[in-house]
Amino acid sequence: MSRKWLLPITIMCFIAGFFLTFQLKVMADISTVNPISERNTNLITIINDLEEEIKKQEELIGETRDNLDKIQEEQIKGRLQELQDSLKTAKILAGLTPVAGKGIVITVDDNTEGLKANPNDDPNKYIIHYSQLLNIVSELKVGGAEAISINGQRLITTSEIRCVGNLILINTTRIAPPFEISAIGSPRLLTEIVTASELAIMKLSNYPVDLKEAEELIIPAYKGDLQFKYAQTKGEN
């Protein structure tokens, strides 16, 4: 018997070995990647891109506002001064300028320790919900807070605090725990009113809660757009 068969068999063995291990490897990769998570990563990149875009636009708005301020300042002459002052207070009220002053900083976070201790329990009992933030903000407002921000997002009249799955939207920006709520106002008054209800409940439920009084607190300006399509001023004095 000649050895003519040796080479073809070897070639076939080579091909078989190649395909076998290659397929094994491909399948091993596949099992770790499922199509849903792949689609999610696509969505995440889209969200990230859009957020980048929003940031750029916000910077543009900020720049334009700065330019406007400069132009307005240049025009300060006599009677205009009065108007400028009222404009300034209006801007502070609208949240369009960064403000500084005394106040408090509240930091709240998900109760991860508690969830770890009871892994079979409903996780909803251990995460921060938007309603808790809403309550704290409302109490701060009752306590006379003049400016409030959460994780650097200034709260203005149109600001929403809204639940989107496991994140919270504020000023259409996604916010994740830990949440740092800064408020400018009388530190004593704010502390008193805040510790009385929602924070007390959260402390009882073992959420990590921290409250600090600050001498010099800076709250950033609202970065988004403000437009009035429907509302018109009427009878202004």
């Binding site: 070897t10 063995c13 070995g17 395909f19």
Partner: peptide, 23 residues
């Protein structure tokens, strides 16, 4: 004489496992 096909199988396996091409 069965060594050569076995070597072929092994070589194919090695190449197949080192190749990183996403199918």
């Amino acid at each position: 004489m069965w060594i050569l096909p076995l070597l072929g199988l092994l070589a194919g396996a090695v190449i197949g496992s080192t190749l990183t091409y996403e199918v």
